[in-house]
């Protein structure tokens, strides 16, 4: 039974109209409904019904493919995100290895005790300063004798000390 049929129209009209007026309104509505019932509207053609059924079936198929596309889209998005994260991770690991290489090299230096290191540095620095002062003296002709040979000798000594220094 429809909601319209279930509705108690007399009771409803009684809320808005007085007794006799309510009855009159009820009668007008019933007659009006009857006129509409007697004059039925045209019905849809069979072709239209078939076309609508085809269209709804087609639309349903489209809706079914949409979730599949959506799943593919989401999966590929997640895969791309994972690749990016992995790529960034690899890049960071490479950088970390480079830093580690630096640290290993430094650790060799750190392997020397600071006392030994200081003694060697003091000795080498003193020798360099002595040679430098001798070179200056030679350049100013403050020494006599075989000056040219002495310069070569000093330069050789200087190179030797310098290479010893960098070898550690």
């Amino acid at each position: 039974m429809s909601k319209k049929a279930e509705e108690n129209l007399s009771e409803l009209l009684g809320q808005f109209y007085d007794g006799p007026e309510a009855s009159e309104v009820l009668e007008d509505i019933k007659v009006g409904d009857a006129i509409l019932g007697e004059n039925s509207a045209p019905v849809p053609s069979d072709e239209l019904i078939s076309a609508i059924k085809s269209k709804t079936a087609e639309r349903l198929e489209q809706q079914k493919t949409v979730p599949l596309r959506s799943i593919i889209y989401h999966v590929s998005t997640i895969a791309a995100a994972i690749l990016i994260v992995v790529g960034i991770g690899i890049m960071r690991i490479d950088k970390a290895e480079i830093k580690t290489a630096g640290i290993v090299s430094a650790s060799l230096w750190e392997g020397l005790s600071s006392a030994e290191e200081n003694d060697e540095l003091v000795t080498l620095t003193a020798e360099i300063e002595e040679i430098e002062s001798e070179l200056v003296a030679l350049q100013l002709n403050e020494t006599n004798g075989n000056g040219q040979n002495r310069v070569i000798e000093l330069e050789m000594e200087y190179i030797e000390i310098e290479s010893d220094f960098w070898k550690g």
Binding site: A41, P42, V43, P44, I52, K53, T56, L60
Partner: peptide, 23 residues
């Protein structure tokens, strides 16, 4: 998403809605 159910819905309601739109 059953096509057959939609087909039945069309059979049940198409006359009423067609009348509604036509009027």
């Amino acid at each position: 998403g059953e096509s057959e159910s939609f087909s039945r819905l069309v059979d049940i309601y198409s006359g009423r809605f067609y009348g509604y739109f036509y009027r």
